[in-house]
């Protein structure tokens, strides 16, 4: 566990270690906090670099979709990122399926708890990604549209928001969904409706992007952010309301697991 929280066997700050506390170090989830931190830093660096690239080139090479510059700086980037995210997504989900646990009935409470912690870390990565996309990237698009007239479906902020950020959120969502389905007994045996909802929301953003662009080129040329044409995104954002149900499902099971450990440790 708390493998993560340094435990030197002290019972209280400054106190001498007791035998029981020292022995308790045996009970540890041994989570790879270094890898978690590296992943988080890597993700923030990726989004930070993307943002820097946007600021550096959007207004200099991204104003005209029909210019050669736009193809060089933005369309090529879009094609590359979509391919990379797609390949990584298929590979990750395939790997999780191929290496699925086929003997979950033999899973110890400690191992199951460890997997729940992995799921929490994956949910955290997804949430950070969602925050960056739903707030920073989405509102950079709001800013862009108030400065430049909407010209085509592909703009620098759209390339970042709809063809990088949203697919990244879908990628993370697909990974944590498949992780739960292949490694956690209660998620493998049944379908968690809240979990399915928070995965379906980001996925359905892509068809809604299609409707959004179709509508903007057809009947609504403006970019009022609060306009009804954008409300589909709001409803899909609401899918994250179900995170509450998912957390309750997870914590209930984690609590059961710890209780089973307490029961097993109790003297007969």
């Amino acid at each position: 566990m708390a493998a993560t929280i340094p435990n030197d066997g002290m019972t209280a700050k400054g106190a001498r270690p007791t035998k029981a506390a020292a022995a308790a170090r045996m009970l540890s989830l041994n989570l790879p906090w270094g890898k978690f931190s590296a992943g988080l830093v890597g993700m923030l660096l990726l989004f930070g670099l993307y943002r820097w690239y946007t600021e550096a080139t959007a207004f200099t090479h991204g104003m005209d979709y029909f210019s050669p510059d736009f193809r060089t700086y933005w369309m090529n980037l879009m094609f590359v990122q979509l391919i990379v995210i797609g390949v990584v997504g298929v590979a990750s989900v395939s790997y999780l399926w191929k290496t699925r646990d086929r003997h979950m009935e033999a899973l110890s409470p400690m191992d199951e708890l460890r997997r729940y912690m992995f799921l929490i870390v994956q949910l955290m990565a997804t949430t950070i990604c969602a925050y960056i996309i739903f707030s920073l990237y989405a509102e950079s698009d709001a800013t862009w549209h108030q400065i430049t007239v909407r010209d085509t479906d592909f703009t620098p902020t759209h390339v970042g928001l709809f063809y990088f950020g949203t697919p990244m959120t879908i990628l993370f969502s697909a990974i944590h969904f498949m992780y739960a389905r292949t490694r956690l007994p209660q998620f493998a045996a049944r379908l968690s409706v809240p979990h399915a909802m928070i995965v379906a929301g980001p996925i359905l953003i892509m068809p809604n992007v299609g409707f959004n662009e179709w509508g903007h080129t057809f009947f609504y040329a403006e970019e009022l952010f609060a306009a009804p044409i954008h409300w589909g995104f709001v409803v899909l954002g609401w899918s994250f309301f179900a995170a509450g149900g998912l957390l309750v499902q997870m914590f209930s099971r984690m609590s059961e697991l710890v209780r089973s450990m307490e029961t097993a440790a109790r003297p007969a």
């Binding site: 949430t127 969602a130 925050y131 996309i133 739903f134 707030s135 989405a138 509102e139 709001a142 952010f225 609060a226 954008h230 409300w231 995104f233 709001v234 954002g237 609401w238 994250f240 309301f241």
Partner: peptide
């Protein structure tokens, strides 16, 4: 922050 931002921005 994520859910509230997108909800508030687009409404």
């Amino acid at each position: 922050a994520a859910v509230f931002s997108v909800h508030f921005a687009l409404l």
